[in-house]
Design a protein around this nucleic acid. Structure first.
Lengths: 234, 234
DNA sequence: GCGTAAAACGAACGTTCGTGCTATATTGCC
DNA sequence: GGCAATATAGCACGAACGTTCGTTTTACGC
């Protein structure tokens, strides 16, 4: 193993440590906030010295930015990838909502959705952290919006609502679910939110059929799968 | 001691100072958070010494609790009282939403809705502050819920939705509006949210006469009225 | 194995935090 | 106007923060 092809696969020890730090940082930050994410506390949790940990990042702001980036990777893995296994259009839109609620309900992050916590914390503090968080949330809104637009293009969704508006509403309901769960600890809110979103989507099902509520309207030719991974990334 | 009759009407100077402090504290806290609300910073802003200000509260937690209470007073004055001038039922429910959106849009608090910020900040930190914030938000949800129930009792609102569910949805949309405004600064989100809530309420209007206080720009004139929801929420 | 670069450490820095303690100014009742 | 009560200031403290620096330990290509 010279410094050749394998040099990239086998990371140096520092990189492994850095990633282990970030894995812990993401959990701490989702609970205590990105400002409450303290270098000393994190070092204690990792069983290493403050200065040793600090050297990996150079400044607290860099640590925060790296933590945000790590949380984004987790989110993509936990929500985006599973959802994009569904065919694009209404099915994927539903999937995005369901997977998101599982993500917020399960313990992906100890303190609920990382990005809702981070955006609430930083919305009043200008700087690169705030900008990055806002950009990532915009990615999420855009993904919802694009999926809704695809559902409209496929004739699965009424055009009475703009995709951006629907994306906002879905995001708001998820935000509300996360908020209620974190504040009151009652997980039933996720099932309620799921029903609220699905009902909203049902009310927006394309208008030609006054049909029943429950069974999925298979109006589009059933394509088994359409895995075009055209998602964000980079 | 000799408690004069006017002792209660004419507040001591300390009380006036205390209230002036809390007025500033509420603004700072809505922007920087209840933890970022620092005694030194607040003292500087008030033009007094740290210890002089501190003596009014005795501990930071007491300052935070007093700030939460002061914010609650502001909220009641800005949202509850105006709304309760409307007759109870659907009119008041609509009013609650509209006034709330004005409250979040206008600069009642510098950093947006105080309680959304506070609950996001404290949802992971047990203690009396968290408990008080959660209780106040419960008050708000209960007010929405009770008003919805009154609207149902008056026959103005379909019984296809439980008041608690509707209260949750309204609160979530407001939360989403506040979130988007704080993060992206685009005030148009309030008009969109207003429309989303009113449309939801319109979809839940009881089955009799279409009261149609606000004609909706429709692209399909064929549908005179949204069909009654046959889906019964569980 | 050796030598070097990376990684981790330990101690200390300057600040800022919340919080006491004590003295002084101010208020408000007789 | 005098006097007790109250309000405010001044100062100091210990702890925790992010950060720097010099040293020591570990990893790893040769």
């Amino acid at each position: 193993m010279t410094t050749s092809a394998t040099a990239k696969a086998v990371r140096a020890k520092g990189d492994r440590t850095r990633q282990a730090i970030l894995r812990a940082a993401v959990d701490v930050a989702s609970e205590e906030g990105l400002e409450g994410l303290t270098i000393g506390r994190l070092a204690t949790e990792m069983g290493m010295s403050k200065s040793g940990l600090f050297a990996h990042f150079g400044s607290k702001e860099e640590l925060q930015l790296a933590t945000v980036e790590a949380a984004r990777e987790v989110f993509i893995e936990a929500v985006i990838h599973p959802s994009f296994e569904s065919t694009r259009g209404l099915a994927r839109l539903r999937r995005l909502c369901e997977v998101w609620l599982d993500y917020a309900n399960g313990q992906v992050f100890r303190g609920g959705c990382f990005f809702f916590a981070a955006s609430a914390e930083f919305d009043g503090r200008p700087g690169p952290v705030r900008d990055r968080v806002a950009a990532i949330m915009r990615e999420w809104l855009t993904t919802l919006e694009r999926t809704a637009r695809e559902a409209q293009a496929a004739g699965e969704l009424s055009r009475d609502v703009t995709p951006a508006q629907l994306a906002f509403e879905i995001n708001a309901l998820e935000l509300g679910a996360n908020w209620a769960f974190q504040l009151y600890g009652d997980a039933r809110v996720f099932a309620q939110t799921r029903e609220a979103i699905l009902q909203r989507l049902r009310g927006l099902s394309a208008a030609d059929a006054p049909q029943a509520t429950r069974p999925r309207p298979k109006r589009s030719p059933r394509k088994t799968k359409a895995p075009e991974k055209k998602h964000v990334r980079g």
